[in-house]
Design a protein around this nucleic acid. Sequence first.
DNA 1: TTGCGCGCAATGATGCCGTAATGTTGATCG
DNA 2: CGATCAACATTACGGCATCATTGCGCGCAA
Lengths: 224, 224
Amino acid sequence: MRLLLVEDEPQMADALATALHQYDIIADHAPTLDFARSAVAEHVHDMIVLDRQLPDGDGLALIRHLRSIGATVPVIVLTARGSLADRVSGLDLGADDYLSKPFALEELLARIRALMRRPAAVAPIVAKLGRLEFSLDNREARVAGKILDLPRRELLVLETLIRRQGRTVLRAALEEAVYAFDDEIQSNALDSHVSRLRKKLADAQAGVEIHGIRGVGYLLRPVA
Amino acid sequence: MRLLLVEDEPQMADALATALHQYDIIADHAPTLDFARSAVAEHVHDMIVLDRQLPDGDGLALIRHLRSIGATVPVIVLTARGSLADRVSGLDLGADDYLSKPFALEELLARIRALMRRPAAVAPIVAKLGRLEFSLDNREARVAGKILDLPRRELLVLETLIRRQGRTVLRAALEEAVYAFDDEIQSNALDSHVSRLRKKLADAQAGVEIHGIRGVGYLLRPVA
DNA sequence: TTGCGCGCAATGATGCCGTAATGTTGATCG
DNA sequence: CGATCAACATTACGGCATCATTGCGCGCAA
């Protein structure tokens, strides 16, 4: 486990580094954004702990940089600014966790452990299949940059299929993903959504098709 | 995206449910631990938002239950107890995030979005034989990464054979696995399925064959 | 109010599956 | 050793459940 610590205050950095050391976590220390950028270019880290307030800019710029080059490394953001808007914007920018100073070291370590546990820690934020791109972030489906305008239920169907990209989704599983307990259905409503979604995918030349497997379920796959 | 909300206060539950609705998240509501337990037993959720203080116990018991059965669903814990020890113990018990009340709805939603970004975990391949891979989880067979498009009954036959891989399966046992009590058959329907399945396995170059043993049953084995 | 999404239901198409006919294999016994 | 028969294999076929598609009307939301 190798971690990049981006923090300009020496005190905080030292305290963290020694604490991490006790958990057998290798910590690289970057005091500035610039340093951090070259660090991620040269090494692959399993996790990044990132202060927002750095001498040469806002730490979030690093997240933007990482995500733009497709890096999916988990990031925990530390900040003195504790405002709600800050936290929300940080999380929505791709941070996996957000902690306001002052915080207890123990809590940070626990949150690091929680992120470390996650097996497939990370995966691309946009899933691609055929000419279709689906952003898990804001749940937008695009073909050649153009947003597919899909109603709620159809979007849910597509989201579910693409999350299990390439794998079969049992009919019952799809139904569960789209309907809650109390708005169960007693018709082939699901089929209609699939059908309408198929038409839209075809019209948009998405390069994917929803393949039905009789008696089993559905499968999203690139068109032959 | 389907979420289980475990929360006993109706106010909080309602507020969350309507907020989630706007994000096209299907939310099931469980007011008690007991209810939550049966909900996770019957349905598969992509995420769980869990209050610790419930009428019939500590919410963390649900996490323990989930992890003990191997479920890796992400969990966000909500709590009125804001002590450091609580947060750390919650995280170390398998929670993915931990939020102390009172919190802003916006922040919870942002943290939900952060967890949602990750796609569903890949289903483990439990069985491999020859060039054939079979995932018991979502019941699909692959050869060289490509899904074999098999109808229900043939899938059942293959699943049964591969579960007992290497060992012979009595004809009667295979029949029981493929047919329920009430839809018994009076012909060699099973033979036809085996035959059709054989053809598909051969066409796909699966590297396995169904070997028939006269008077006994069948056996799935790698092709010589 | 006006649209649009959604559940519903009717209709048409598809292809799975049980049946049975026919061919093939292998064991048993004269 | 070969005749015989039972067990298994394969294939065609038709019924019918399942799926696909589409129009309709209700209801919610702008």
